[in-house]
């Protein structure tokens, strides 16, 4: 696992954490059948925070951020995203989904649509933006992720890294206030990981609230303001990155870090 993510200077000046609460999770529990995947999760995320969630596979970290987007249903407890409580009310779910962007491990771009159409689909149909305006926004964000020239291609014609950047642009087109990343680099070849992480760093520099499930510890060190370690469906430890990596408190965290950084 590479330690250093990027070779350029990271501008931390804009990465300001405000007092405004973006996400609040209270005593959230979730079961798959009888299997207790998430246990008593309590978490408050402020606007502008960059949080990296780490943990062994099966620890429930992906499930946690999927719950924030109602891709998974939680059975107990309370989740409030951007002032809206996540209940079984469809209107709330739709509102939250349009405020929260999400990037997946396997990108989940729509292969039958061009890059531009991928980016304008949701603004047109969900936000009811006029097509021209939506296309302008899409081009703006495609330029931001540095692939405006691919706008008329189809996802299948792009490399994995490019696809993931398109997926980020697609989420940004909805002008979300929070971005969720579910292992955005795990399906990528090493040389492509950097380009995606660079995009994510830029996003962080602009003050986006980010929750990121990743194994990229370099990214966590450089960008995150908080690292959360999960195991067996629970939050085991959270701390600032320096403390977390240099001075872990829990035995589980130590074991995990030694496995992941040990070679």
């Amino acid at each position: 696992m590479s330690e250093l993510t990027t070779d350029r200077e990271i501008d931390r000046s804009k990465m300001q954490v405000s007092d405004e609460v973006a996400i609040e999770i209270n005593n959230m529990n979730k079961w798959y059948g009888t299997f207790h995947v998430l246990r008593d999760i309590n978490l408050t995320v402020n606007q502008g925070e960059r949080i990296v969630i780490a943990g062994p596979s099966g620890s429930g970290k992906s499930t946690l951020i999927r719950c924030l987007n109602a891709l998974e249903e939680h059975q107990q407890g309370k989740i409030v995203v951007d002032g809206t409580e996540l209940t079984s009310d469809l209107k709330n779910i739709d509102k939250i989904r349009s405020e929260v962007g999400m990037c997946f491990q396997h990108f989940n771009l729509f292969p039958h649509l061009t890059i531009l159409e991928n980016c304008t689909l949701a603004p047109i149909w969900v936000r009811k933006t006029p097509r021209k305006e939506a296309e302008e926004t899409a081009m703006h964000f495609l330029e931001k992720v540095k692939i405006p020239e691919q706008a008329d291609k189809y996802p299948g014609q792009l490399s994995g890294g490019q696809q993931q950047r398109v997926a980020i642009a697609r989420s940004l087109c909805m002008k979300p206030r929070i971005m969720l990343f579910d292992e955005p680099t795990s399906a990528l070849d090493p040389e492509m990981i950097k380009e995606v992480l660079d995009t994510m760093i830029e996003l962080a520099e602009e003050g986006m609230t980010m929750l990121c499930v990743t194994h990229e510890m370099g990214f966590a060190r450089q960008v995150a303001n908080r690292v959360i370690f999960m195991d067996a469906g629970q939050i085991v430890e959270q701390n600032e990155p320096e403390e977390f990596f240099n001075n872990p408190k829990s035995e589980r965290t130590k074991l995990f870090l030694s496995q992941i950084l040990g070679h």
Partner: peptide, 25 residues
């Protein structure tokens, strides 16, 4: 340490038949 506080039960409104995923199906 944890005190489970269930959200206060909302009273049933007819619009929930359509908008609430529990009743919609």
């Amino acid at each position: 340490m944890t005190t489970l506080t269930d959200p206060p039960r909302e009273s049933f409104r007819p619009s929930m038949l359509i908008y609430d995923t529990r009743y919609r199906s």
